[in-house]
């Protein structure tokens, strides 16, 4: 399958990329690793007339200690995340979940920024970043702004990033090397999660994030509140599907997704070490 024609622009700097976005407006799409965008273009579900390739902006490929958080450049690849010791020590859950994304080939190309900016609720990392209350740094021609994960995802494949803006950095609060579990349910190893549930301990509280249980990644607030009130993992997990808007597709009905959310959340809470 061959995508529709487009003009290819290779960005050699962040400013250059922002300039190209300003010039082409919403006709343009940013290409990072391309692991989601290129299949969409091949199916012609995405038909950008200008593709701005950010793939060589190595300035945005880093994992740094930011004090109370780990700063991850938007073009950092999943492979970088899953092999990074700083991330393993300070945000073990991000490193572990990055290793669950797609397959080796996908992780070699796919980036954390691409995964976040794509806004697919079936992606693994956005739900984790939401559970950890990560911040996203977005740069536009007029400057930089920082958006909390809770305010970032707005709908199916939609985020607060404007057409002329670029996600440059993900700031993940430190949660330590352990105390988490990610339960991903899919039929083939490399597939997207039919449903996923991540449980992670942050300080005294336990956070739960849900993958593919609605238009955006979600927090299982009901579960978190029940745990805070001292409920057992089994009892708390019973609230996992509350307030979700799971869709039905070829893989699962909405009802079955609700069931999966409860079961996977219970497993995540029990396995959390």
């Amino acid at each position: 399958m061959i995508p529709a024609s487009f003009e290819y622009v290779r960005a050699d700097s962040v400013d250059g990329l922002l300039g190209a976005l300003t010039e082409h407006g919403d006709e343009a799409k940013i290409l990072a690793g391309g692991m989601s965008l290129i299949p969409l273009m091949k199916f012609r579900l995405a038909v950008p007339s200008v593709l701005v390739d950010a793939g060589r902006l190595d300035d945005l490929r880093y994992i740094r200690d930011g004090g109370d958080h780990v700063a991850i450049g938007a073009l950092t690849r999943h492979r970088d995340l899953e092999t990074n010791d700083l991330l393993g020590a300070e945000c073990g859950v991000v490193r572990a979940v990055a290793a669950e994304v797609g397959d080796n080939q996908v992780r070699h190309r796919g980036t954390i920024g691409g995964s976040v900016a794509h806004g697919d609720s079936a992606s693994d990392l956005p739900a984790v970043l939401l559970a950890l209350d990560a911040d996203f740094v977005i740069r536009g021609a007029s400057g930089e702004r920082v958006v909390a994960a809770a305010d970032f995802f707005t709908g199916y494949f939609e985020t607060v990033i404007a057409p002329d803006e670029l996600l440059t950095e993900v700031r993940v609060p430190k949660s330590g090397p352990a105390g988490f579990s990610y339960q991903k349910f899919n039929r083939r190893a490399q597939d997207w999660a039919i449903v996923g549930s991540v449980a992670v301990r942050v300080g005294d509280s336990t956070r739960v994030g849900l993958v593919n249980m609605g238009p955006t990644p979600l927090r299982a607030r009901g579960v978190e509140m029940a745990l805070a009130e001292g409920a057992s993992a089994t009892d708390a997990a019973g609230a996992a599907a509350e307030g979700t808007e799971a869709s039905a597709d070829i893989n699962a009905t909405a009802e079955y997704r609700g069931h999966l959310a409860r079961v996977l959340t219970r497993r995540a809470l029990e396995a959390m070490v």
Binding site: Y8, R10, G34, M35, I38, Q105, H108, R109
Partner: peptide, 21 residues
């Protein structure tokens, strides 16, 4: 994965990468 090749030593699926990349 039938189209897997190495790009700068790393395996990639060449059906999901533009030649320009």
């Amino acid at each position: 994965g039938a189209c897997t090749v190495l790009v700068d030593g790393e395996s990639v699926k060449s059906c999901t990468m533009f030649a320009a990349q």
